[in-house]
Write a protein that binds this DNA or RNA. Sequence first.
DNA 1: TTGACATATTCCTATATAGGAATGTATTGT
DNA 2: ACAATACATTCCTATATAGGAATATGTCAA
Lengths: 129, 129
Amino acid sequence: MARASTTSDAFNAVAEPRRRDILTYLAGSERPVGDIVEALGLGQPSVSKHLRVLHDVGLVRMRCHGRQKLYRTNAEAIRPLHEWAGTFERYWQHQLNRVKELAEATVRKTSPDLHPQEPSQSPKPKTQE
Amino acid sequence: MARASTTSDAFNAVAEPRRRDILTYLAGSERPVGDIVEALGLGQPSVSKHLRVLHDVGLVRMRCHGRQKLYRTNAEAIRPLHEWAGTFERYWQHQLNRVKELAEATVRKTSPDLHPQEPSQSPKPKTQE
DNA sequence: TTGACATATTCCTATATAGGAATGTATTGT
DNA sequence: ACAATACATTCCTATATAGGAATATGTCAA
């Protein structure tokens, strides 16, 4: 099986850096395609194709204005992403503490004279990557 | 050019639903690969490959314990994602207001007797998708 | 109507998957 | 040393891009 389609959900659509750039650019106000092309320095067909993906998953809204089409970021569609990531917030707080502990332990090992090791230290896990 | 590698950054790694499942599963505590296989009902090679991707971008940490390897989510690596998405928070609040206004306007149009239209209403933009 | 302008849509190609099957590699227990 | 266990890696294939070039579609202006 190949990778999931870029239009399958917001996660896949946003995986492409240029599409994130476009979303950022279109966040504040609606803009015609030509502005995006010029601002991001991409080819016009590329931008159109990215916009198609973004529109398919509801990450941008479109409005016709004469011969140009005005796009704007639909921030609401980014929310699920924010919320999914936010699920891990309580864990990265925990891990900050762990990192801090580890750093202190490292200092103790590096300069043992200045930071004498405590007696009943739990055996350090042999972490390897 | 093809799509960016899944190991190019956290955004690409997280685009795959199974990998998000794995991250969620490994958020609270470290687990051996076999547990993930059983919990998520995937093939063992698939899980190993997903773990490789996640490890390459730093989304999981690994520790050897006898013949098994214990994986755990590195929540810290999810933070950039959360922060990028959070950039749009102020906009989706705006848009909630716009949606609310639109809904009220629709009610006025649908039941004009109950909700008489105000005189100097700004011309509604002809939004079309 | 015709031409200029703004976007969208093929057509093309190199590249990268995700999953299943089969196989490789450590590590443990006897 | 050997079998069993726990993972990782390779091989294979169908599928899906992203970007550039060329072309199609739609809209305004004279």
